[in-house]
Write a protein that binds this DNA or RNA. Sequence first.
DNA 1: CTATCTTTGTGCACGCGTTCACAAAGACAT
DNA 2: ATGTCTTTGTGAACGCGTGCACAAAGATAG
Lengths: 261, 261
Amino acid sequence: MATGRTHRPATRSRGIPEATVARLPLYLRALTALSERSVPTVSSEELAAAAGVNSAKLRKDFSYLGSYGTRGVGYDVEYLVYQISRELGLTQDWPVAIVGIGNLGAALANYGGFASRGFRVAALIDADPAMAGTPVAGIAVQHTDDLDRIISDNGVSIGVITTPPGAAQQVCDRLVAAGVTSILNFAPTVLSVPDGVDVRKVDLSIELQILAFHEQRKAGEEAAADGRTAVDPDTEEAPPMRATPAGRKGPDGDMPAVMPA
Amino acid sequence: MATGRTHRPATRSRGIPEATVARLPLYLRALTALSERSVPTVSSEELAAAAGVNSAKLRKDFSYLGSYGTRGVGYDVEYLVYQISRELGLTQDWPVAIVGIGNLGAALANYGGFASRGFRVAALIDADPAMAGTPVAGIAVQHTDDLDRIISDNGVSIGVITTPPGAAQQVCDRLVAAGVTSILNFAPTVLSVPDGVDVRKVDLSIELQILAFHEQRKAGEEAAADGRTAVDPDTEEAPPMRATPAGRKGPDGDMPAVMPA
DNA sequence: CTATCTTTGTGCACGCGTTCACAAAGACAT
DNA sequence: ATGTCTTTGTGAACGCGTGCACAAAGATAG
């Protein structure tokens, strides 16, 4: 830039769209790969392809961070890596606590991708007294009773919940009370938290159900296109009408057969 | 290639918005809980609260499925459970194959929430010959060489990828070639697939980075509100200017120090 | 049957995010 | 210096999703 404009356009900094924030890690990953291959610069077109997004979208996203590109050339890889890292807050250390060391919790503790970007598994917490002291991924599991102290002592502000659904809200409350203000929830439960606390949820079951919806739709369309009997759910109707006013579902649990008058 | 076609107006079927589809599993979960408590009917207000959404949004979502409520009363729980299950395609069996039986893959195989809704782990596949035959979650792991046959024999149309990032695209290609049309990707990679194949990604690292962004922002605002030195990233500037035109990042891997003229 | 009360279903307006399309900016060659 | 060529940065239009607010529908009571 001619005038070396490194200053924010006033209130612009607070206005990074959420959708853009969600894509920054994607760009960062692609840029890191380029960096490792010692590629000095990339065009928006190339980077967009690597990140799997539209190039116009990418340019607009970067424009929110400031103008870090050079027209006619592209973006400097190393510089962008730094800028995005800084914007995402990855230049600092983020101690993370995982609560609920079952199959999933243990897998996450062992997951390499975790530590790779400034996130450090600072503590593993479980409600089972028998697990206390057991090392998982090289870290001794601690008991829930000490949750408060553990969070405080380690300065944890990001908590990961991998408990059974029944315990999630309670654990969440305790984490928040202890000072955690960001939560990544793997339990299939809707967590309620006070203002100022961010919750992001990862739900395998929901993802699969969304895929199933599209899968079913594809199957229906395909059958229709083949001239065969459509399997389209809207055509297939024949829903279960009322059985008995007090009818309950069977022990199976998922195939009801009741409907109001 | 990725340019794809433009003649796909998002959701084409009976016009159920994608955002609505993503919420249906949420409603279903809340409804199932009510069903287990033998609650006969719910109002949109109650159900919305249980699902953590706005009641108007919920009503509008349901309106896309048809009018299944009764004014002045609410919705019949059992009936709604069935309607949503049917719409999502959960009344049928979905055999799922998990490829990459490491920490995460094994955890998923053991995850109970998987089988709970019509999804059945039909096969576990791994590239390590030493794992072949080893039972995980009661299922013998099979070798990647037989991927094609395994998918076909079990009629798998949904695949879950939990391999290291380097192998993900290759595994994806093989799954698609074998007939899989829906993929749930846990590997931190952008998968490219032909039209007609749906991919959903679950990325722990990205979720954490998004949380870190907001966490950093909160910390900055709080500091500013306290009248102390702001930690606002845009104020903190002092970016790394050019080092040497050929300067590369250190072995550490994340703190570059280069910038173009 | 009429009146009142509850709750659904939806028309409408608004805001966010995406995409197009192009002018401006800079590199590079002559 | 001038011209050409490449690529960024962004104004503007568009479409989707959200939430308000209310009329219509039905239950319920008298």
